[in-house]
Nucleic acid binder design. Structure first.
Length: 752
DNA sequence: TCGAGAATTGTTTTT
DNA sequence: CAATTCTCGA
């Protein structure tokens, strides 16, 4: 990053009063501008830190920003309110939500919870899921909320039978949410807007508090979020938003590029500053990005430039199938990474499902990796169970949480008893938990007793970690897990331990904080946990390859980036290709643009002729986005023979540089155990760099026939050791885990 | 009440 | 293909 601010950046920093729209291209130093702006406001303009609000998209971005502000401003910089939209709203709501008829210990429902609730609603409304699927209903309701359309209004607008049905579901959904004293992610924004709309005094308080407002990743805001900041900034107009229309990739979540245009309308006289100098990528990478994004029509004209050297051309590789692709990419990284710092490498893909193959290769080669995305820590079963206990203790109105754990671990309370209690709750219109209290069922009584006991413990100020611990013992949860046995239970217990330490950490932070906005500890902890995204815990200081979706990579940068699965139908997705809405394809192109611009030094794009999707083998050609990059920026490595449909049944593999094993039919590749993955002992791909012996040991302290232990696979027997140029390649039979080829330096095998 | 096996369903992307 | 949901027998 450059030492001083360029002219445009400086102008943005110095413009401290009145509305400001910064159109910041990828890698143009927008975070730097934002942080410097905060510093300038505090140090030069004498603005009190607590009057500044900076809204980011992820917690990670918020932490990063806070850290950087700390570094420049020092001292009372922690008074600057840096948070995501969602956590900002939670903090406001915890304080004032009673005005809307909820209580401040409200629960936050994630997608799973929403789905459970919807399922119940579908059942009670007797909706045939062939007519309408929960998921669709959820999507429609969510986008209605993004547009601040409530159930009543939605009902009025309903155009057809399906809409009317959804309106009914929406209505019931909101009713139940209220009854459970719960809000979903969308509600957090919607309810805050509603709070402001209906309570002039509250709005005024926050307008006064937040005299200076900054919004990062502005292109990702949806209408509700736009409305929120518009309300807050209405009084003083000191609002600065930073965004890039080319990086708007969350349309499916309601993000509205139009917000960039409406900004100038909503805030008259807004100053607009463009940042077009890129400080991140080499010339070739940037030109590739420019040439791709040029094909979009709905965009503000701009062209990024860089002062950096041209660098290596963008490498393009074609492989026969997805297995080869994964294999080659990971091998390539292994070959390229001479300094052992794998944190410089990211492998990106369009869909989470693609991570599996890549992960497998990393495990096999013993190369450290981290998958970001997929299943969030907090949505694992065991964690959600514990959290449901905490929610039940904290918010007796949360029926969902209570029902989740009433028979976990098994207490012999089955569906029948639950149904009976549910009915009586309904009849008396009380919460499920209150109905439990009144229940005559002895087992349910025992359950209630446990919860009551813990409510008392919380009141007495028991530490969160201790609370979880004793919960595990008292309920027999730990015991049940242990009986379940073996490896599974162990990782689950480890996860719970992890949760305990996070709880302890949170409690420490909490007790140090004397913020007036904070409510009770348990509520705060639960909402903190609910709003954590997987990217948030991503730590770039650890040496490991990062595997994630292109969406997940937004806002990050890596020296080496691999964009995999560059195939028509996958990326751009077939959905967007078949859609008659051109903008869907443009969104895909923006995703591609985001991916390309993550790379600092070297970008590699790969695609495969065939790939298994949904258990079916599909054949595809290169993504159109690849074709949109002129040859002058590309270094192509294509297979010699192009696939065509007529040669499907011919021997199409003869000219490849490796043997394709006869037994490797599409179907038995996935069979468990054994070393059935083909292609490993083929000639290394041409990208496989000359090996150096950085990590290579001069000898191994085990030999053929020895029993060794591996951290992931457990114990195994060494079958063969081959001395490669760069490292020893060891073949080990791990029994259940099959036979594996491993690099000795990474596998860290230990003789036992 | 609960587990095992059968049937069904699905794929973008996520705060 | 895999994950989730459904169904049926004990």
């Amino acid at each position: 990053m450059q030492q001083t601010l360029n002219n445009m950046q400086q102008e943005a920093v110095l413009h401290n009063e009145g509305p400001l729209l910064i159109l910041a291209g990828a890698g143009s130093g927008k975070t730097r501008v934002l942080t410097n702006r905060v510093a300038y406001l505090i140090k030069e303009c004498g603005v009190a830190p607590w009057k500044i609000l900076a809204i980011t998209f992820t917690n990670k971005a918020a932490d990063e920003m806070r850290e950087r502000v700390d570094r420049i401003v020092g001292e009372n910089s922690q008074d600057v309110w840096v948070a995501t939209f969602h956590s900002t709203c939670v903090r406001i709501l915890r304080r004032y939500i009673d005005r809307l008829g909820y209580t401040s210990d409200f629960s936050i429902y994630d997608a799973d919870d929403q789905k459970t609730l919807l399922k119940n609603i579908f059942k009670s409304l007797e909706i045939d899921t062939h007519m309408l699927k929960e998921k669709n209903a959820m999507r429609v309701i969510s986008s209605a909320k993004d547009e601040l359309i409530g159930p009543e209004e939605f009902s009025k607008q309903a155009a057809d039978y399906r809409d009317e049905l959804i309106a009914k579901v929406y209505m019931e959904y909101q009713r139940q949410m209220k009854k459970n004293n719960a809000l979903d992610f969308d509600d957090l924004i919607v309810k805050t807007v509603q709070l402001f709309d209906e309570n002039e005094d509250v709005l005024e308080r926050y307008q006064e508090k937040f005299r200076y407002i900054m919004v990062d990743e502005y292109q990702d805001t949806n209408n509700a979020q736009f409305r929120l900041i518009e309300l807050l900034a209405r009084r003083y107009h000191n609002i600065c938003v930073v965004g890039d229309d080319d990086q708007s990739i969350y349309k499916f979540r309601g993000a509205n590029i139009e917000n960039i245009l409406s900004f100038e309308k909503a805030f008259a006289g807004a100053k607009v500053i463009k940042l077009e100098q890129n400080y991140r990528s080499t010339g070739n990478i940037l030109e590739a990005a420019n040439s791709v994004i040029m094909h979009n029509r709905g965009r503000k004209e701009k062209r990024l430039w860089t002062g950096r050297e041209d660098g290596h051309k963008v490498r393009l590789y074609q492989y026969d199938n997805a297995y080869d692709e994964a294999d080659a990419v990971i091998h390539d990284i292994y070959g390229l990474c001479q300094d052992g710092n794998y944190a410089d490498y990211a492998v990106l893909y369009r869909t989470n499902a693609q991570s599996r193959l890549l992960e497998e290769r990393c495990v096999r080669l013993g190369i450290p990796y981290l998958i970001v995305g997929g299943v969030n820590f907090y949505q694992r079963k065991e964690i959600k169970d514990i959290l449901a206990y905490l929610k039940t203790i904290n918010n007796g109105l949360d029926d969902l949480a209570c029902k989740r754990i009433i028979n976990v671990p098994k207490r012999g309370i089955g569906a029948a008893s639950v149904g009976k209690t549910e009915a009586s709750a309904m009849a008396e219109s009380i919460s499920f938990y209150d109905a439990c209290k009144k229940s005559g069922n002895a087992k349910i009584k025992d359950f209630v007793e446990v919860i009551e006991e813990y409510k008392a413990k919380v009141r007495e100020g028991m530490k969160l970690a201790d609370l979880i611990d004793s919960l595990l013992e008292d309920t027999g949860y730990r015991e049940e897990l242990e009986q379940e046995g073996e490896v599974e239970a162990e990782t689950r217990i480890e996860n719970i331990e992890e949760l305990k330490s996070k709880a302890a950490e949170f409690e420490n932070k909490y007790s140090l904080n004397d913020d007036t906005e904070q409510g009770n500890l348990l509520s705060e902890f639960l909402s903190d946990v609910a709003l954590v995204a997987d990217v948030d815990s991503f730590d770039e200081s650890v040496s490991r390859i990062t595997l994630m979706t292109l969406h997940g990579a937004k806002g990050l940068e890596f020296r080496y980036v691999y964009m995999t699965g560059m195939e028509e139908g996958l990326f751009p997705s077939s959905m967007s290709i078949n859609s008659d809405d051109r903008s869907e394809l443009e969104e895909e192109r923006r995703i591609c643009y985001v991916g390309i611009t993550r790379a600092k030094d070297l970008l590699t794009m790969t695609f495969a002729r065939s790939r298994t999707v949904n258990g079916e083998t599909t054949w595809s050609k290169a993504s159109r986005f690849v074709d949109e990059i002129p040859d002058e920026y590309l270094e192509k490595h294509l297979l010699e023979k192009n696939y065509n449909a007529s040669s499907l049944y011919e021997d199409d593999y003869g000219d490849l540089d490796y043997e394709r094993g006869k037994s490797q039919s599409e179907t038995d590749r996935y069979s468990k155990g054994g070393n059935q993955f083909g292609g490993f002992n083929r000639k290394a791909p041409s990208t496989y760099q000359k090996a150096s012996s950085v990590a290579k040991a001069d000898h191994l302290d085990y030999g053929v026939g020895d029993t060794v232990i591996h951290t992931k696979f457990g114990t195994g027997t060494v079958i063969a050791i081959e001395e490669g140029e760069r490292d020893f390649e060891v073949t080990v039979d791990f029994g259940d885990f099959g036979t594996r080829h491993l690099f000795a330096a990474f596998a860290k095998l230990q003789k036992i």
